[in-house]
């Protein structure tokens, strides 16, 4: 397996005054180009910290991240993030939110009309072109997250980072968006790293599921391959033995061997 994105022996220690808390210990992961990886674990296991390190928003205490052999030490559009709460700028329209990123990333390489077409193309991809002139306050949570995904995709990232992208949505909207993300991944072949706490979501979307142990000093407990063919269809999978086996493997890890600390106590 080629290393497109390599997470190399990462430790993360936070120091606040005299108190230190070790969040991550010795996390290593190699991701191939085009792979869809989910990171799953109980809350507080440092999975968001790990994503922030890959994004470059946070510097690892020890270890590092390599993208195509080059070290990552600051945030950049090659690792676009879809944030949990969409984080669209409320004073900009849907179109302008995406355009802000496109203008910045492609100012030198594309003409004005090319950039406009590219914004519209990405809004089309997430089926949000109809709302281009709306402001985030005027559209639903699921739509906001679609725009957030469009903004990230529009940067043509080498790796797409999703930080619990569907966590704040209701179950039906979430299913819709998961299907959209699957479609887009199928079409564009992005490399995706997704944080989630939803077992079904992880199995449905991922090529591999990375299961984190509980903090403090969380690390990777197990990595599960999901050998399901793509395109995957939600309805067909419900009775698929491979799906059921993967799903129960993750459940087993999360609830039998690594229960949430509050539950275990």
């Amino acid at each position: 397996m080629s290393d497109y994105l390599a997470i190399d022996h990462i430790d993360q220690v936070f120091q606040r005054g005299a108190a230190t808390s070790e969040v991550l210990r010795d996390v290593s992961l190699r991701i191939a180009k085009g792979e869809y990886i989910s990171i799953i674990g109980h809350s507080g296991c440092g999975k968001s910290t790990l994503l922030n390190i890959v994004a470059g928003l946070l510097r690892a205490t020890r270890g590092g991240v390599l993208l195509e052999g080059r070290e990552v030490n600051e945030p950049g559009p090659d690792r676009a993030v879809v944030f949990q709460n969409h984080s669209l700028l409320p004073w900009l329209t849907v179109y302008d939110n995406v355009k802000l990123a496109v203008d910045k990333v492609f100012r030198a390489t594309r003409s004005k009309s090319e950039r406009h077409d590219w914004v519209m193309h990405n809004l089309d991809l997430v089926q949000m072109a109809h709302a281009r002139d709306k402001r985030p306050g005027e559209i639903s949570g699921g739509m906001k997250q679609r725009v957030g995904i469009a903004r990230a995709l529009a940067m043509e990232p080498k790796v797409l980072l999703l930080d619990e992208p569907f966590g704040a949505l209701d179950a039906l909207t979430r299913a819709h968006l998961q299907d959209s993300v699957m479609e887009i991944h199928q079409k564009l072949g992005n490399t995706v790293l997704m944080i989630t706490h939803d077992v079904d979501e992880a199995v449905l979307l991922s090529d591999r599921i990375v299961m984190m142990t509980n903090g403090p000093a969380a690390t990777i407990g197990e990595i599960l391959e999901v050998p399901l063919d793509r395109p995957r269809r939600r309805l067909d999978l419900a009775a698929d033995p491979v799906y059921i086996r993967c799903r129960s493997a993750v459940l087993e890890f999360l609830y039998a061997r690594h229960r949430a600390p509050t539950l275990a106590a």
């Binding site: 994004a55 470059g56 928003l57 945030p75 950049g76 559009p77 944030f83 984080s87």
Partner: peptide, 10 residues
């Protein structure tokens, strides 16, 4: 979040 967006977009 807004700061992070700005940082990712540079």
């Amino acid at each position: 979040d807004y700061r992070n967006v700005a940082r990712v977009v540079r």
